[in-house]
Amino acid sequence: MPTAAADSSSGIGYIGFRLLEAPVVRREDPRALKYIVDHLKPGTVIERRFEVANKSGSRREVQLYPGAALISDNRFLFADGRAPNELTRWTRVRPAVLRLKPWEKTEAKVTIKVPGTATPGERYAVVWAESGTPPDATHNVGSVVRVGTRVYLDISNSGEYADFRIEKIVALRDKKGLPSVVAHVHNTGRRALDLRGKLVLSDGPGGLSAGAHPVTEGTTLPPGGTGTVRVAGLDKSLPDGPWTARLHLESGMVQHDFSARLIFPKPGGASVAWAVITSNRRIWYAAAGILLTVTGATMTFLRYRRYRCRRSTGNQTRVPSV
């Protein structure tokens, strides 16, 4: 059964895992510092270094290998065990086994070799570090722990394109009166998105401000997909509003903002808020107003000229013809 993948920087129990490098063109991309994210042409080979740490006072044997992953129901999911897919068949991790002393850490390397015949599209996998504790005299059941980093690999001969659109936000109150906000998002690009961000509520009743609230992370939208992200943890006593809601969402270096006037409904209800007029649209309206003003002034001037011309014609002296 697929399961939600852990973060690359995590250390669960007694294993730590940390990615050590990112592509030069992605050094400013926080997502590429956490996961292996790249866009390659067929026939390309890449390498990434990572660190594995033994965070215990005992010796540990750690298995390193790639495992299959996919995006389903707007979640990044990984398969059990060493289940393969197309991307794992292109991937090698060296060394395959680490024997770490207590509190020791060391580096390893993952190599991805994309075949020249690879078809366009994005693939997903996880690079795993796995360590197990076998049953012993005091433990009848052994345990297996694994941590790792996600791999998002896009194959194409053309350029990379990632983008999204925030379509609307919805204010909710559950039956107990607890408020939350849900944003509907459309992935308009060709790369998967891991959405995160924050919601700021201001200009409430009496000028109140409810501060900033983080978006619940975990939503991964596939290329072309639609889904929602939620802002929870709002105070039950939060007034209904209206509020000015400013939502900021990002995935890597792609960022968008959405502003709207928001009113929270009664318990058990929902209230949709659409975007307020954007600054560009306000500029368009201002330009239209200036155009109308100029047009009106021009028409007045032309009417004035015609009036002067008629008066001048009526008053001039007539000269007899010869």
Score class of each variant (00 low, 15 high):
Thr188Trp: 03
Gly189Pro: 06
Ser131Arg: 06
Leu193Gln: 01
His256Pro: 00
Leu201Gln: 00
Ala108Val: 09
Arg48Trp: 08
Pro115Lys: 08
Val126Trp: 00
Leu100Met: 10
Leu234Arg: 01
Ala69Pro: 03
Gly197Gln: 01
Arg281Leu: 09
Tyr161Cys: 08
Gly252Thr: 06
Val97Glu: 06
Thr226Gln: 04
Ala288Asn: 13
Arg31Thr: 13
Thr111Arg: 14
Pro222Glu: 09
Leu178Pro: 01
Ala79Arg: 11
Asn74Gln: 14
Arg92Asn: 07
Leu199Val: 02
Glu107Lys: 10
Gly211Asn: 07
Gly204Thr: 04
Gly224Glu: 11
Lys34Gln: 07
Thr228Lys: 01
Thr91Phe: 02
Pro84Asn: 06
Asn187Thr: 02
Trp128Asn: 03
Pro120Ser: 04
Pro115Leu: 12
Val97Asn: 07
Ser9Asn: 11
Arg246Tyr: 05
Pro134Met: 14
Val45Thr: 15
Gly233Tyr: 08
Val126Asn: 03
Arg146Phe: 09
Val97Asp: 04
Ser56Val: 11
Arg31Asp: 15
Asp38Phe: 00
Ile12Tyr: 11
Lys113Trp: 12
Leu221Tyr: 07
Leu172Trp: 02
Phe264Trp: 03
Asn54Cys: 06
Leu40Phe: 05
Tyr161Gln: 13
Pro239Gly: 05
Thr44Arg: 06
Ala22Asp: 08
Leu292Cys: 14
Leu238Ala: 04
Asp257Lys: 00
Val126Leu: 09
His186Asn: 08
Arg311Thr: 13
Tyr285Ala: 05
Arg308Tyr: 12
Asn74Pro: 14
Pro320Glu: 10
Thr106Arg: 08
Ala171Gln: 01
Glu167Pro: 00
Ile155Lys: 03
Thr119Cys: 11
Gly241Thr: 05
Val229Ile: 07
Gly16Asn: 07
Ser271Trp: 02
Gly225Cys: 10
Val229Leu: 08
Gly197Leu: 03
Asn85Arg: 10
Tyr161Trp: 14
Val62Phe: 04
Tyr304Pro: 13
Phe17Lys: 01
Val110Trp: 03
Gly189Glu: 05
Ile46Val: 13
Thr293Ile: 13
Leu292Pro: 11
Arg261Glu: 00
Ala270Met: 02
Arg59Trp: 14
Gly159Ser: 15
Gly204Leu: 01
Ser131Cys: 12
Leu302Pro: 14
Pro84Asp: 10
Ser72Trp: 12
Pro242Thr: 06
Leu153Tyr: 07
Arg311Asn: 12
Glu160Thr: 14
Phe301Gln: 14
Ile46Asn: 02
Lys41Pro: 06
Val147Leu: 06
Ser202Asp: 03
Val126Cys: 08
Glu217Leu: 05
His139Ser: 12
Asp38Ser: 06
Val200Gln: 00
